[in-house]
């Protein structure tokens, strides 16, 4: 038996799918902590700066242009879903109706999800915060430190740098992502095969 398959290169992951899954995962595992500590967690992936003072809002942009919206290949999202299921049982956890389980039961399962999910993050991603300041402390952003994609301004949003406000969330950026390669014949829609013990 001799065969040779070419591999698709590790798919450059579309950030939208990653962010989506992160949000889902963060929501899942934070449930337990949320319940036990009664401290809300903001499931917002961007760094958020709440502005204290600002000037008037800018004019509506005149040159409105039709944006090119990309329909991304779902394979990498499916792959990530599969990894989170395999390592962290994320699908099993989220597909379950947990309203009638008590916190101790949910907590025990959350550990499985958290332990496995953390392993996935460590193995495939290198994450770094976008801002290094302490949250809830004052920050001032000069024009060259500002990027509308990396920093979300809220509150009294001004039009002109420097922006002075309170760092609400420090943000996360994926510095490195290294997902496993998939064989060509692999069906990514099977995120967890059924298992039959003989």
């Amino acid at each position: 038996m001799e065969f040779n398959f070419s591999f698709e290169q590790a798919i450059i992951l579309d950030p939208l799918h990653v962010l989506l899954l992160f949000a889902v995962c963060a929501l899942g595992v934070s449930f337990y902590w949320f319940k036990s500590k009664q401290k809300p967690i903001v499931p917002n992936e961007r760094m958020t700066v709440n502005l204290e003072a600002g000037k008037s809002l800018p004019d509506e942009s005149a040159d409105s242009k039709v944006a090119d919206l990309l329909q991304l290949d779902p394979k990498s999202a499916l792959q990530l879903l599969s990894i989170f299921q395999q390592e962290a049982r994320l699908l099993d956890f989220l597909q379950e109706d947990i309203t009638h389980f008590d916190d101790a039961e949910v907590g025990a399962v959350a550990r499985v999800v958290h332990e496995g999910g953390q392993k996935v993050l460590q193995q495939y991603f290198q994450l770094s915060p976008i801002r290094s300041e302490d949250e809830e402390s004052a920050v001032t952003l000069a024009q060259d430190e500002f990027s509308a994609q990396a920093i979300r301004l809220t509150g009294k949003v001004s039009n002109q740098a420097p922006f002075t406000g309170v760092l609400v969330h420090k943000g996360w950026r994926v510095a490195v992502i290294k997902l496993p390669k998939l064989a060509e014949g692999h069906d990514p829609y099977i995120v967890a095969p059924a298992e039959v013990e003989l």
């Binding site: 038996m1 001799e2 040779n4 398959f5 390669k181 064989a183 060509e184 014949g185 692999h186």
Partner: peptide, 15 residues
Amino acid sequence: FEDSELALPWGNSSG
């Protein structure tokens, strides 16, 4: 496994 599921970057003749 289907053969394709066991493929490695250099093939996998041993199975």
